[in-house]
Design a binder for these strands. Structure first.
Length: 409
DNA sequence: TCTGGGGTCCTAGGACCC
DNA sequence: TCTGGGGTCCTAGGACCC
């Protein structure tokens, strides 16, 4: 691992990761908050989405319940997320990446892999390119980022983590194991809480420990896929290819929406109404994406956080909210819950295919329902007049103040 | 007032077909 | 009559990532 002028020969994969992205964007125009603890996070039962480095110094971490974060750092300024702004900044950053190379794999709003193999003659070494990118983003967006440079995506990702904040780390091929092996097992991509506990039970604390454990032992403890994967990554394996986003003709695998209620409920009517809201959002997003799907999955989380799913595969694919909601509602009713306290409900549709090329057959004797046309008309009206103009009648009670289970304070 | 919302992939068992 | 494997689809749950 090198932080000075490094040997980046043969390293063409960059992982660029914005530093405390949401917090940085939310405070970049607020001089008075620079250098102070800031938490971006949400709402009533929300979690931390992003924390400034000053807040992290007090132990605040992303995904931590907001309540705990406030307790750890009561002096922090708490800001609500504004995803429209985050998305706009993200899009601009990704465009900057594409000025450097067309091979950009966007991983989320705040990180991407780049392969700069084809850019060296024009722009110099990977290290030069990283510093150029960082300067441009700091200049144009007034936020900082960190870059990891390596021969695999996994090494580049771990390298960018070591580079934070506001730095660059190169891991040359020859130094891969020297870089990896001292790190804790949690650093490996694919090791979360459960797997980390299992590894530590085996007496494995570092990535080097994993590397020197036979793959078969790991596979027996963690399953064939995870075991093989971790052993490979521990020796510096993993993908050497950056995939420039998913091809257009390959749709997402699923589209879903779920909601945590402001307060747990045992009222089936409330759940069914929230399922309609979710189904409406899901169907609209499916139509926008031009996909239809066959499998409807209901998700219910109870007050003790246990979560169940129920799914059913339809004979014909759909993108119609009324059908998705009807199926989710049937699955919910079939649970036969008796006064169970429910915390969250949601709907997901999978088995997605391109709407334009998926043949749609009317079942013999079935008449066209007209719902598809009606919802398309709704899409058009929302496009013209805004979301408030059009929504299912049973969701309109909100406006009269009858609904209080969902809205933010 | 503990624990969001968007996803992906893997596993395992049963049904069903060849 | 008994035994058998492979492949695919479906369902439920779980781990993980950002």
């Amino acid at each position: 691992m090198t932080t000075g002028r490094p040997d980046d020969a043969g390293c063409t994969i960059l992982h660029v990761d914005m530093d405390a992205f949401y917090a940085s964007v939310a405070t970049r125009d607020r001089q008075e908050l620079q250098g102070t603890p800031v938490i971006v996070g949400g709402g009533h039962r929300g979690v931390v989405l992003s924390a400034s480095y000053e807040a992290r110094r007090h132990g605040v971490r992303s995904a931590m319940p907001m309540m705990r974060a406030r307790r750890l750092c009561p002096q922090a300024t708490v800001l609500a997320p504004d995803f429209e702004v985050f998305s706009a900044v993200s899009a601009a950053v990704m465009e900057t990446f594409r000025d450097v190379t067309p091979v950009v794999q966007v991983m989320s709003l705040d990180e991407a892999f780049l392969d700069v193999a084809g850019s060296a003659r024009r722009l110099g070494s990977a290290w030069d390119i990283a510093e150029e990118l960082r300067a441009r983003i700091a200049d144009e967006q007034r936020i900082t980022c960190s870059v990891g440079i390596a021969t695999t995506t996994h090494l580049a990702k771990l390298a960018s983590r070591r580079a934070k904040p506001d730095g660059v780390v190169v891991v040359p091929r020859a130094e891969a194991t020297a870089f990896l092996h001292p790190l804790e097992v949690e650093e490996l991509w694919g090791v979360g809480e459960t797997t980390a506990t299992a590894l530590r039970r085996l007496g494995l604390a570092t990535i080097g420990d994993i590397a020197h454990t036979p793959a078969l032992i790991l596979q027996r403890a963690l399953g064939p896929a995870v075991g093989a994967q971790l052993h490979d990554l521990a020796w510096g394996g993993g993908s050497t290819t950056v995939v420039p986003r998913r091809s257009v003709d390959e749709p997402d695998r699923s589209i879903g929406s779920d909601t945590t209620y402001r307060r747990d409920t045992d009222d089936p009517a409330v759940v069914l109404r929230e399922l309609l809201r979710s189904a409406t959002m899901v169907a609209a997003r499916m139509r926008r994406a031009g996909v239809v799907g066959r499998t409807v999955t209901l998700r219910v989380r109870f007050s003790d956080f246990t979560t169940i799913t129920r799914s059913r595969t339809l004979r014909e694919p759909t993108d119609v909210a009324v059908q998705i909601h009807a199926e989710a509602g049937r699955l919910f009713t079939a649970l036969g819950l008796q006064r169970a306290r429910i915390r969250l409900s949601g709907v997901r549709v999978s088995g997605l295919t391109d709407a334009a090329t998926t043949p749609r057959q009317l079942v013999l004797g079935e008449r066209a329902s007209g719902w598809s046309e009606a919802e398309r008309a709704m899409d058009a009206a929302i496009g013209r007049y805004g979301r408030a103009a059009v929504q299912p009648a049973s969701l309109l009670v909100d406006r009269q103040g009858l609904r209080s289970d969902h809205e933010e304070p």
